[in-house]
Design a protein around this nucleic acid. Structure first.
Lengths: 219, 219
DNA sequence: CCGGTCTGTCACCAATCGGTGAGTAACAGT
DNA sequence: ACTGTTACTCACCGATTGGTGACAGACCGG
């Protein structure tokens, strides 16, 4: 992979070493996984393939087959990290405010999720992948993600009792769906349903609208 | 393209004609466009390419270059049809009910949009395409779609005045985003954020949740 | 030192992709 | 009937894809 550049460097300077790859399996595995995640985050799933990952990782694709059993295994490894997403990207505390009602909770969670998704290109790509394809790969990824999200939601709810007479599962699904689509659409084209979403001010308006929506159902 | 099968038929029966393609440019153009739309609707944008469209249309890909100027032109032709989508798929009348308030209107529009999107695989693929890629192709498609949607929204609103003090643009964007993501997610994996969406009963629950959401903000 | 295992590289495969240039068959005008 | 245009097909191009088998060198136990 880097042979050409390395050779060129050698010919030019005659000093620099050929940048030999060290023999460290776990390091290579980590490099591959990292390359895959970065590639997926930056390029999207359209050009996500064995060759592209190997190229970015700077190693031969054969190693991906050996260490991960191909792309499927690699994707699964990515999914394994997804369980830590919530823990990594979303603060545990309640931001110093007391969440007295279910409405308080959902408002806070919605805004947290909005921000977290906005800041994580990889997760955005995965969500986009989920609704664009229906392969086994994606299904596993999707499962891991929704499970992690559900656990987070349960944990944050704590002992708060949801309001009676409302199908919270359906309503919350709609709320989170709206957040996901808003963020994805904005990331792709800078707008959503005609609503421009580029600078911070635009997002503030979206956030207040979201709050209003949540408060509308949950009071 | 059908030469092989035609030849085989000839060898077997010795009677059937070689299924010769008639020389009718406009018919061929229509066949190509139809093939492209069907292909996009059924297979998605992953395998949407010149070769695949030509294969499905049963003609040579050269004709796509000649008649549409390549895939871009073909996509643009698809986008041109998008303006008629609302007219074709969404009923004009108010369903026999009087829409007195803005809330009445938005509830009705939301449900109409939900159903229409659920029934149109092509439109679903386009929406999924929009949030997955950001090429010029998709941008034009997206533009045509959002413009048609906006016109429909304006027309249906009529002389109804939106409520004061609410950023209806942002709120409506969120509502429509939730619908789109819900439908796309369901079409891909049969569920959305853990909410199963398969049989009619599931969708009824989603519809009531949507109504509740809309009524929450708009009363 | 020798032999085997582990890590990494390389060359090659068939298939498919988008794209093009040349050719053929049917038609229309004269 | 000759001619030019239109509609269409075919063969080929280079590039890239996923995938595999063979090989080279480092390391380690004997």
């Amino acid at each position: 992979m880097l042979n050409e550049t390395a050779m060129a460097a050698l010919e030019q300077t005659g000093a620099t070493e050929p940048e030999k790859r060290i023999r460290d399996r776990s390091a290579t595995e980590r490099a591959i996984l990292k390359a895959a995640k970065n590639l997926l985050a930056e390029e999207g799933f359209q050009n996500f393939g064995i060759n592209a990952v190997a190229r970015r990782a700077g190693c031969d694709k054969q190693l991906i087959y050996r260490y991960y059993g191909g792309l499927d295994g690699l994707v699964e490894a990515i999914g394994a990290d997804l369980g830590n997403w919530v823990k990594d990207r979303i603060p545990e505390d309640t931001g110093g405010m007391f969440l007295l009602t279910y409405g308080d909770l959902m408002e806070r969670l919605s805004l947290l999720f909005l921000e977290a998704l906005r800041d994580d290109p990889l997760m955005r790509r995965i969500v986009a992948w989920e609704i664009s394809e229906n392969t086994e790969q994606v299904r596993r990824l999707s499962e891991a993600r929704s499970k992690a999200l559900g656990l987070w939601l349960d944990r944050m709810r704590g002992s708060l009792t949801p309001p009676k007479g409302i199908d919270t599962a359906a309503v919350n699904a709609l709320i989170f769906a709206s957040i996901q689509h808003l963020v994805l659409s904005a990331a792709a084209g800078g707008q959503c349903a005609g609503l421009v979403l580029k600078n911070g001010k635009d997002w503030e308006k979206a956030a207040t609208a979201l709050k209003r929506l949540v408060r509308g159902v949950y009071g």
